[in-house]
Nucleic acid binder design. Structure first.
Lengths: 195, 195
DNA sequence: TGCAAAACACTAACCGTTAGTGTTAGGTTC
DNA sequence: GAACCTAACACTAACGGTTAGTGTTTTGCA
């Protein structure tokens, strides 16, 4: 069974992007709450059920581009240089991620997220999922087969660093401040990190 | 304008409790997702609109008893002994809160929360609100008029401690582990906590 | 007793989401 | 190329949480 790199996959991806683009356009133009799922489907010239076969929820339409957040975070932990310590590697990645979402093009989206309770909730939930994945990566990095409380805690602190920095007046400085705390927390906990 | 301690307030509180009790009973009996709002309203012998005038959402029905979480957390920070440091006071309160929700009577509710995505999301959102309130309390304790990144960070770490401990196999030990980290983080950040 | 406000009830709907049921198009096999 | 299978898509109808609109009762107070 090969990977089917054919026209079908391209068409599917095109439909998905068409929906996401239509959604983002309408959301930014009229506001998230003022746009209904049926509006988005109509704008993308697609049935409502088709929309929901590509996106699990209305909120997911907004975070379509941020699917790689978790991948990048986990990658920063697992694929770092052989002698680079964990926390600085994560700090570097968080810096990059925060920079990325304060870009000219991404900023309006995040402004919308911050103003929409339902989107905030969704993003908080995503962060917890990302933290879980990061915790597993950190545990594996320590040679553990399961996560410990310390792994889970440091992972959560790291994703909170992203969240706090994103909302701060001076994001890079905020990343530095929070990572100073995380570094200290990690050093204090390393003795019992192994379980 | 006095505080209207009359019959009206008592009746309102009684209706509220009647609804919450009916909801909790049905949720624990049949499962959260298997019970509809209309079922709850019927069981409480109340109109659906009345239910929603007492509770903002279906999820809020479950967390009715935990309205004092934030109050207790903020209280631990603001009303502690004159010479007791901040972090130990918070640690003591988190211990108490975790103990409280692992009680025989509260445990089934939290089991239901953990198994229901919509309730998990709601609780995460509550935690963020509680963290904001705690951050303001901590800032005020430091003589600041606004919260800083460090205040917000330590507040989030504290509410995460609750969350992590609640899910841990050995909650009290988990509280200790996470607070060891928080203590170190706080010490490292104290120099720049003032802004 | 009369009045204003609050609590409550009822209907009907809105909106996100899903089930059920086809229909079409793409890829696979012979 | 014909037969066939699957995935993508469309359509209708509904479910369940939530709210608007409207009216009725209850309560506190003058």
């Amino acid at each position: 069974m090969t990977v089917m790199p054919g026209r079908r996959e391209r068409k599917k991806a095109a439909t998905r992007r068409k929906i996401a683009d239509a959604a983002l356009g309408l959301f930014l133009e009229r506001g998230y709450d003022a746009v209904g799922i049926r509006d988005v489907a109509a704008e993308a010239d697609v049935a409502v059920t088709t929309l929901f076969s590509h996106f699990a929820s209305k909120e997911a339409l907004v975070f379509e581009q941020d699917q790689d957040f978790e991948r990048r975070l986990v990658g920063a932990a697992t694929e770092r240089g052989p002698h680079e310590p964990l926390i600085p590697a994560l700090r570097r990645e968080i810096h990059a991620l925060v920079r990325h979402c304060t870009t000219e093009e991404a900023a309006p989206i995040w402004r919308m997220v911050d103003q929409t309770p339902s989107l905030r909730e969704y993003e908080e939930s995503m962060r917890m999922r990302h933290a879980d994945a990061l915790a597993r990566a950190i545990a594996a990095d320590l040679g553990l087969t399961q996560t410990t409380t310390v792994c889970r805690a440091v992972a959560r602190f790291v994703v909170e660093a992203f969240s706090l920095a994103r909302e701060a007046a001076d994001p890079p400085t905020a990343v530095e401040e929070v990572f100073t705390m995380i570094e200290a927390a990690w050093e204090a906990a390393r003795p019992c990190a192994q379980g």
